[in-house]
Computed example of a mutant assay.
Amino acid sequence: MSFLKPPGLVIIVFSLILSACQNGENNPTLTKEEHQPPGLIFAVPPYEMPSRIQQRFEPLTSYLSEVLDQPVQLYITHSYEDQIKRLALGEVDLAYMGPSSYVKTRDNFQQTGVNTIELIVAEAPYRAAIIVHQNSDIKSLTDLKNHSLAFGSYHSYTGHFIVRQLLRLEQIYLRDLQFYSYLGRHERAIMSVVHQEFDAAATTEGLAKRFIDLGYPIRVLHTSELLAPTVIVARKGLDTSTIESLRDALLLPSDKQLPKIAQSGHHFYEVDDYEFLEVRRILDLIEY
C-alpha cells in the first residue's frame, strides 16, 4: 500500500526551505568549495541582534572594501565558538573579537610555535557591567548570593569571564547562585532581567547604558575596571601588504578618508599582545 503526502505538508516543507534560503542571504556561504565568495570575509560574533550588528558594521566593511579595492563581506557567526573555529581554520579572513576569544584562538590553536592569527588594531578599552531590575532590592555584589544570574556567551569576556572573576573576589561562586544560564547574546541577558526572568545579568557598560537610555527598567549594579580591548585580527597567511593596508586605513586615514571612518562609528588604536596578559590569567583562574 502506498501513501500520498498531503498537499499541505508539501507546501509547509517548501516554505521552510525557502525561508532558510532567505535567512542566509545576509551572510556569505562559507565553504571550501569553488562557490566561496570573492574578497575578504569579516567575521563578527553574535553579541546582539544581527540587524544591529549589520547596521553597525556595514559602513566599516564598505570603507574597507573601497580602501583595499576588493569586497570585504560581513559574516555574523552562529556563535562565539563558530567565530573562533572558523578564524583558526582560515575559513574567514578577518575577525572582530573580544579579549577572551582572541586569547583562546591565539593560544589554543597554535601549532609549532606559530600564531594562527595576527593583531591588526584595537578599539578603546571598555568595562563590563552587572545589571539588575530597577525595582530590585539587590544593592551590592554580595547580595547576588542565592539569586539568579544570566550570562551571555560562555566565551564572552564581559558576558562571562570577567563577571565570574568579580564574583570570585567577593567569594561568590556558581554554587552560591540560585541558578544561572548562558543565553548567548548580551541583549538576551539584559532582556531576561527586564522581564524579571533573572535577578541579574552580565553585559557591557555601553550596552547597559544604551538600554537604560531607551527606557528599559534596569540599573547598573557594578562595573569592572577598564578591560583589555576588542580587536580586529587577521587569519594566518593573509598577505602582509593587505594587513598593512588595513592597519593604515584604520589607524591613519587620509583627510579624504576621515569622514568615512568617522561614519562607521568605530575608533581604532594600536595594540600589543602584552595587553592580554591579564585576560590569560583570568581564563586560567576560571577554567582551572
Rank of each mutant, 00 (worst) to 15 (best):
F3A: 14
F3L: 14
P6Q: 15
G8D: 12
G8L: 15
I11R: 12
I12V: 12
V13E: 12
C21Q: 14
Q22M: 12
E25W: 15
N27W: 01
T29E: 11
H35V: 13
Q36P: 03
P37T: 08
G39P: 10
I41D: 08
I41G: 02
I41Y: 07
A43W: 00
V44P: 00
V44W: 01
P45M: 00
P45E: 03
P46H: 08
P46A: 06
P46S: 07
Y47T: 11
Y47V: 05
Y47R: 06
Y47E: 11
E48R: 15
E48W: 13
E48Y: 10
P50M: 02
S51D: 10
I53K: 02
I53D: 03
Q55H: 14
R56E: 11
R56Y: 09
R56P: 05
F57P: 09
P59M: 12
P59C: 12
L60F: 02
T61W: 11
Y63R: 04
L64M: 11
E66F: 14
E66C: 06
V67M: 06
D69P: 01
P71Q: 09
V72M: 06
Q73W: 08
Y75I: 01
I76M: 08
T77E: 01
H78I: 08
H78R: 14
H78W: 06
L89I: 02
L89E: 13
E91V: 04
D93M: 04
D93W: 05
A95Q: 07
Y96F: 15
Y96D: 07
M97P: 07
S100W: 03
Y102A: 01
Y102L: 07
V103N: 00
N108R: 12
Q110P: 04
Q111C: 08
T112P: 04
N115T: 14
T116R: 08
T116S: 12
I117Q: 00
L119P: 03
I120P: 05
A122L: 07
A124T: 08
A124I: 02
R127Q: 13
R127K: 15
A129W: 02
A129C: 00
I130D: 03
I131D: 03
Q134S: 15
S136I: 00
L144V: 14
L144Y: 04
H147N: 12
S148W: 04
